[in-house]
Design a protein around this nucleic acid. Structure first.
Lengths: 123, 123
DNA sequence: CAGAATCCGTCTGGATACTG
DNA sequence: CAGTATCCAGACGGATTCTG
C-alpha cells in the first residue's frame, strides 16, 4: 500500500482535541442512540447499558457544550428533558458510524489477535 | 434529516469494545503517524508531541496486541525497534482518518460552541 | 423524572531512575 | 536506543443521598 502524505502536526493536534471528547467510554454509545432520534433522559439511560446517572449527565453536558446536542426542558411535573442531535451532531455521527461499523465488523478479528498475542507472551 | 435505523445493542457493544482502545488520548496520533510509513520508537516519540515514554510503550503494545501494528527488533548496538501498521491497521486508519479529518476541519466550530456555552452558563 | 452534591476507591498517566 | 520499574498525585467514575 502507498504511504499517505504526513498529516501536519497542527491538524493532528486539532483533531485530537476534538476526539478527546468523543473518545471516552460513553460518548459513542450516546451519539449512536441519539442518531435514531430525539430521546428523553431516562430513555437514553435505559438504552445505554451500564451507564450511571452521573456519567450520563456529564457526557450529555459535554456534548451540549460542544454543540452536538440540544437540551430542551419541559417545565412539567414530573419534569421532562429531551435531547436531540444538532445538525452538527448529525454530521459527526457519520464518520463516527463509519468507525463504529468497522469496529463491529472486525470485533472478532481483534479478539483473535489478542488471544494469539497473549498466548505468544505466556512463556 | 431522516432518523436512521437503530443499531442493534450487540453491534454497539462490539463497536465500543474495539473503540475503547482507539479512543484513548494517544492512539489516534500514533496510528496517523504510522500511516505515513514504518517508524522507529524514538521517531514516533518525537512526532507525537507531549507523549511520555511510558505511554508510547503502553499504547504501542496495545496496538500490537490487537493486530494493528508489527514490532520488529534489530539486535544491534544501540538497539533499534521499528513499528509498522499491518494491513489490518491500515484498514483501521481509513475510518480513523475520516474521523480525524472531520475533527480537524470542525475544530474551530467546536471551540466556538464551547465559548458560547460557557458564556451562557456564567450568570 | 431529571438531575445536583457528596463521598471515596480505582486507575491513569507523568516523573524519575535504572538496564541490556 | 529502547525500553522496564517504581512512585505517586490527581482525575475518573460508581454508589448513594438529596431536591424541585
Amino acid at each position: 500500500m502507498e504511504p499517505m502524505a504526513a498529516p501536519s502536526p497542527g491538524k493532528c493536534h486539532k483533531a485530537n482535541e476534538v476526539i478527546a471528547l468523543i473518545g471516552d467510554k460513553w460518548t459513542v454509545h450516546i451519539v449512536m442512540q441519539l442518531a435514531t432520534g430525539k430521546k428523553r433522559f431516562s430513555e437514553i439511560e435505559r438504552s445505554v447499558d451500564g451507564i450511571s446517572r452521573k456519567m450520563l449527565t456529564t457526557t450529555l453536558r459535554g456534548l451540549e457544550r460542544d454543540g452536538y446536542v440540544t437540551r430542551e426542558v419541559f417545565p412539567t411535573i414530573p419534569p421532562r428533558v429531551e435531547y436531540e442531535l444538532t445538525n452538527f451532531g448529525r454530521e459527526l455521527s457519520c464518520p463516527l458510524r463509519a468507525l463504529g461499523d468497522w469496529a463491529a465488523a472486525n470485533h472478532d478479528r481483534v479478539l483473535a489477535a489478542r488471544r494469539a498475542y497473549d498466548n505468544r507472551v505466556e512463556d
